[in-house]
Simulated scan of single mutants.
Amino acid sequence: MPKKMSAARSKAIAGLLAATSLVLALSSCATYDVTAPADARDDAPAADVKAKDAKGGAGKGGNSPAKSADGDDVDCRKAKCVALTFDAGPSENTPRLLDILKKEKMHATFFMLGKNHVVKRPADVKRIDAEGHELANHTWSHEILTEIEPAKAKLELSRTQDAVQKITGKKPTLMRPPQGKTDGEVSKISRDLGLAQVLWSVTAKDYQTNDSALITKRVLDQTERDGIILLHDIYKGTVPAVPGILKELKKRGFTIVTVSQLLSPAKPEPGMVYRP
């Protein structure tokens, strides 16, 4: 007949099991998959690499502008690429920004807010799409996704997905979590909605200043190959800084691309966090 376990030992084992369960639960919530653009390209499926090579993307830095948002006209395995992204629009500043990008024959990724932006400026959303830029999701109302219930976080993303699709016929495949805050639950929601998550390596902190010269300096000081630049087309000082930023980046040999072009021949993987 087995010996009866002592109360002290039973209590100790119960405590250990509880602690183990808590660690597993916390790690499950906290973990998510992260990869850098260069690693994503290196790990691209062989079929996608073969297709990319067959199309013969451009590869000579700033002298080979990226002409479309599908990744066909530039090869960031060869070119010195940097992705240009804008958050929180569209706004009254966006048409001027689009004029600048059109003149320079460059494309960007626009992480758009649904409420007060996408739904109120559908003509700008249509133009962003029509001119070859990349449509992306920055939630409905800029709620911090890690601080709200999963159902609400999902709604923050799905409402903007639906709004963009209603205007353009397309659903974004990229999203940027407000303040860059994500976790395992947000990654699961993103995966379910077909959204890859995109963070950044360059920020001008243009929400702190309208000084266009300072914004330009901050961007140029931080930009390196395979970087992702974060700007906002809702602030007064940002759009006036863009021509100078583009000019100097080209001078330094950068090819300015969308996020999907930066990752190509890999395709954005839903749920994955892309961070330089």
Rank of each mutant, 00 (worst) to 15 (best):
M1Y: 15
M1C: 14
A7M: 14
A8I: 13
A14T: 11
L16M: 11
A18K: 07
V23W: 08
A25E: 01
C29G: 14
A30H: 12
Y32W: 11
V34H: 00
A36Y: 13
A38S: 12
A38M: 06
A40C: 08
P45K: 08
P45H: 08
G61A: 14
S64Y: 09
P65W: 10
S68V: 13
G71M: 07
C76T: 11
V82W: 00
A88G: 08
A88E: 09
P90K: 06
N93Y: 14
N93T: 12
R96G: 05
L97Q: 09
L98F: 07
I100W: 01
L101R: 00
L101N: 00
K103Q: 06
M106Q: 09
M106V: 13
T109Y: 13
F111T: 08
G114S: 02
K115L: 15
N116T: 11
V118N: 09
K120Y: 06
V125A: 05
K126D: 13
K126F: 09
I128G: 00
D129C: 07
E131F: 05
E131C: 03
A136D: 03
L145W: 00
T146R: 03
E149N: 01
A153P: 02
L157Y: 01
S158L: 01
Q161A: 07
Q165N: 11
K166Y: 15
T168I: 12
G169M: 10
K170L: 15
K170E: 15
K170P: 13
P172F: 10
L174P: 06
R176T: 08
P178N: 14
P178H: 10
K181S: 14
G184P: 11
V186D: 07
S187Y: 05
I189K: 00
S190H: 06
L195K: 05
A196P: 02
V198K: 06
V198F: 05
W200F: 09
A213C: 01
I215W: 01
I215S: 02
V219I: 11
V219K: 06
Q222V: 14
R225A: 14
I228V: 12
I228Y: 11
L231W: 08
L231E: 04
Y235I: 09
A241E: 10
V242H: 14
V242G: 15
V242D: 14
I245Y: 02
K250C: 07
K250E: 04
K251D: 12
R252E: 11
F254A: 06
Q261C: 00
Q261Y: 03
L263F: 02
P265W: 00
K267H: 04
P268I: 00
P270Q: 04
M272G: 08
Y274A: 01
R275T: 10
P276G: 03
P276H: 02
